[in-house]
């Protein structure tokens, strides 16, 4: 059963399941220990390496080996972890487990354009104003009228010496916003890449003071990016295409990596995201089987009461009109054939001498006859007339 259609075959909104979008993805760390090798870390020795791949490997939580940065001895002590999700996801949460005391300041960023631009999702710091120029988030987690990156209290060390950064996209998003109906919230949760900025280690003293710093390294494991592959309500799963790119398995006449547009022939109404109440499936143009392409016309769509705006292009089989629903000039509808029949339109075949033109009545097929001429194609003289030798007046009254 396809979750995007009900038992009767009618389309309905569908979304991919919640997954860890970072699982198996490459993590780029700005600093990783072991190059050059030290006694504790050697990137070339699998038994003593602490690569960033450990952050997103399956079963990472069970591993006792963590990613570890180089020993940082100079200010600034910034280290970034960046993971490309491969396509747009709608985030639910981001978490990172630290193997040592969690940093005193962490910034969480997202990109929606595969790493070209970055925007903050949230911050964790004991000194929000100092580190990020922001006030501390209200205790109830609420922010302004729209979603915004809030600065939350610093991550706390756990009894085992580690710590957990757990960020929910609801943090920073005002309650009551509905993903279906809020484009602002849809934008807020959408990301193609996640970046975690570790900006201040959990060491005593002022980390802006060079002399106060003791060598320090960040250490973490199990980066999780919980979210749903973004398909705008038009797919229930994502797949790898022939080039290895992650794409939505689009339904409802949609296409694109995120099902973000209508397929070429499915443009009878504008593309819209599916909601719980309305599927907004893209509809095929109504061309009676005589056209393969169509375009959307907003003016016609408005005039139709938001029902149909598709205009068929290149109507074949001698048909014409917005829906290829009538015959081209010089052809008429054969009443014995259905409108979708390839031979629904017959040539007028008006007589070159008896007819006054080449265009017949599109319904009856009657050609316009010269005086005294009769017949569907104007090929006979009427009663009381006889053929003359003049092609201008082919039939004259019988004397």
């Amino acid at each position: 059963a396809d979750p995007c259609y009900d038992e009767g075959g009618a389309p309905r909104g569908c979304v991919p399941g919640l997954v860890n979008a970072a699982l198996g993805r490459e993590v780029l760390a700005s600093s990783t220990c072991g190059q050059p090798a030290t006694r504790a870390c050697d990137a070339s020795d699998p038994l003593r390496a602490h690569p960033a791949t450990l952050l997103t490997v399956a079963g990472g939580s069970a591993s006792s080996v963590c990613w570890r940065s180089d020993m940082l001895q100079r200010v600034p002590l910034n280290v970034t972890l960046t993971v490309a999700l491969g396509k747009a996801f709608e985030l639910v949460f981001v978490s990172l487990r630290f193997c040592s005391a969690p940093p005193a300041s962490v910034a969480l960023l997202k990109s929606q354009d595969h790493g070209r631009n970055w925007a903050p999702l949230g911050f964790f710091s004991s000194h929000c104003a100092l580190d990020y120029g922001r006030p501390h988030a209200p205790l109830d987690g609420s922010g302004g009228p729209g979603p915004e990156a809030l600065c939350f209290p610093a991550l706390q060390a756990q009894p085992d010496g580690g710590g957990l950064m757990a960020f929910s996209v609801q943090d920073g998003s005002p309650p009551g916003l509905d993903l279906d109906s809020s484009p602002v919230l849809q934008d807020w949760v959408t990301a193609t890449d996640i970046r975690i900025l570790l900006t201040r280690p959990a060491v005593p003293g002022d980390t802006r003071d060079l002399d106060a710093i003791v060598p320090y390294s960040y250490s973490a494991t199990e980066l999780q990016v919980g979210g749903r592959c973004k398909c705008n309500g038009h797919a229930s799963r994502c797949l790898l295409d022939a080039q290895g790119h992650l794409i939505c398995d689009c339904r409802h006449g949609t296409e694109g990596p995120d099902c973000g547009r209508c397929k070429p022939f499915y443009c009878d109404r504008p593309w819209q995201r599916a909601t719980a109440r309305e599927t907004h499936a893209c509809l095929a143009c109504s061309c009676n089987g005589h056209a393969r392409r169509c375009r959307f016309n907003m003016e016609l769509y408005r005039l139709s009461g938001h029902r149909s705006g598709g205009v068929c292009l290149n109507c074949r089989h001698n048909t014409a009109g917005r829906h290829c629903h009538y015959c081209q000039e010089g052809f008429y509808r054969d009443p014995d054939r259905s409108l979708s029949d390839r031979r629904a339109c017959r040539a007028c075949d008006c007589h070159p001498v008896g007819a006054a033109g080449k265009t017949c009545n599109q319904t009856t097929g009657q050609c316009p006859c010269k005086d005294g001429v009769t017949g569907l194609t104007c090929n006979r003289c009427a009663l009381g007339f006889q053929q003359s030798r003049s092609p201008v007046a082919p039939c004259v009254k019988t004397p």
């Binding site: 001498v353 090929n379 003289c381 030798r389 092609p391 201008v392």
Partner: peptide, 23 residues
């Protein structure tokens, strides 16, 4: 009564050469 179809061979195109249909 059904009249015969127009006989193209009977028409005189002398003065209407430009109107003569291609056969």
């Amino acid at each position: 009564e059904v009249m015969p179809t127009l006989d193209m061979a009977l028409f005189d195109w002398t003065d209407y050469e430009d109107l003569k249909p291609e056969v």
